[in-house]
């Protein structure tokens, strides 16, 4: 088991001086993930907060090779790099003992929505890549528009709460299961507050041969509207309410990595964030109920899948 002290001794691949918001959850995720392999790493990053806030020219927060080409194509860009690696290796233009790891990174917008096709294609083709989605439930970089990862009831600028609207009314897309349906070697869902679990998953993802996918809950004080010091508390709550279950699917076999002793009501999660504030109005009570129902269904199904 890795110790935090040992991780801290490793050189940062993402460094200080980035422009992500005060209390942003993105760096916490990548601080851990980027330490889960010792091999040289190449990252292809989709457009979004992480990309924008780390590379404002002439500065860069990347102490590792990194490329951005567009919003919807991190998965195809990283596959192109991986294919070239294979080609040059076969031709002997990269030494036999030289290894690289290839990491595609995108937000929920770049992954659940506009980049889903590219990701589906890349994992179906079987490239030896890891793809990490940092899911902050919203298009944060462009100011808080809905994505298919936005939960029911959340107010986003393109699904705002209003006198006639309770915020987003659709159920969120279960992207992790979409990836499971691709029958790839490794799929997992993680959260930054359980760093050991996140680290283990990232390590497995880097180690398996073929495509691996990690979906990581990402705290966003700016768009979720909470006191920025409480991010990690919120992550606990997301997992304890089963809004964001931690599980992994290795070669098709489900394993839930954390089962709360006592599953907390979704309300506990919702009341911490301004984006759900309007749900406490009488007329929106049904949304809360619906949210709880969806979470219960998903949790039940997940437990069933695990027992298979």
């Amino acid at each position: 088991m890795a110790k935090l002290k040992d991780l801290a001794a490793i050189e940062d691949r993402l460094v200080a001086g980035h422009g992500m918001c005060i209390g942003c959850g993105i760096p916490l995720i990548f601080k851990v993930i980027l330490r889960a392999t010792e091999d040289p790493l190449i990252i292809a990053n989709a457009t979004g907060c992480l990309e924008v806030c780390t590379t404002i020219f002439p500065r860069t927060s990347w102490n590792v090779t990194w490329v951005h080409s567009a919003f919807e194509n991190a998965a195809s860009t990283i596959s192109g790099i991986e294919v070239m690696y294979k080609a040059l290796k076969k031709k002997g233009r990269i030494p036999k003992d030289k290894r690289f790891k290839f990491l595609g990174v995108g937000g929920d917008g770049g992954t659940y929505d506009i980049g889903l096709q590219a990701l589906s294609g890349a994992v179906e083709r079987g490239h030896d890549i890891v793809y990490v989605c940092y899911d902050n439930n919203v298009y944060a970089n462009t100011g808080g528009q809905r994505s298919s990862a936005t939960p029911i009831g959340a107010s986003a600028t393109t699904s705002p709460a209003g006198t006639q609207s309770p915020g987003k009314i659709q159920r969120r897309k279960d992207l992790t299961k979409v990836l499971v349906a691709h029958n790839i070697p490794y799929v997992a869902q993680a959260s930054p507050h359980r760093w050991q679990d996140l680290y283990n998953k990232a390590k497995k993802a880097f180690e398996v041969e073929g495509p691996a996918f990690l979906n990581v809950l990402c705290l966003c004080p700016t768009e979720w509207k909470y006191d920025e010091s409480l991010g990690i508390r919120l992550a606990h709550m997301a997992v304890d309410t089963c809004v964001w279950p931690l599980y992994e699917v290795e070669n098709g076999k489900y394993k839930i990595n954390y089962k709360p002793k006592e599953k907390k009501p979704v309300l506990e999660w919702i009341k911490t964030q301004g984006r759900f504030r309007h749900l406490f109005k009488e007329k929106n009570a049904w949304v809360l109920e619906e949210f709880q129902k969806q979470v219960d269904q998903d949790w039940e199904e997940l437990n069933k899948l695990e027992s298979l």
Binding site: I42, A44, S76, G80, I81, E82, V83, M84, A87, A118
Partner: peptide, 12 residues
């Protein structure tokens, strides 16, 4: 994606 792959591969 074909062009994105080309871009990744050429950058590589």
């Amino acid at each position: 994606s074909a062009m994105s792959l080309c871009i990744g591969a050429a950058s590589a």
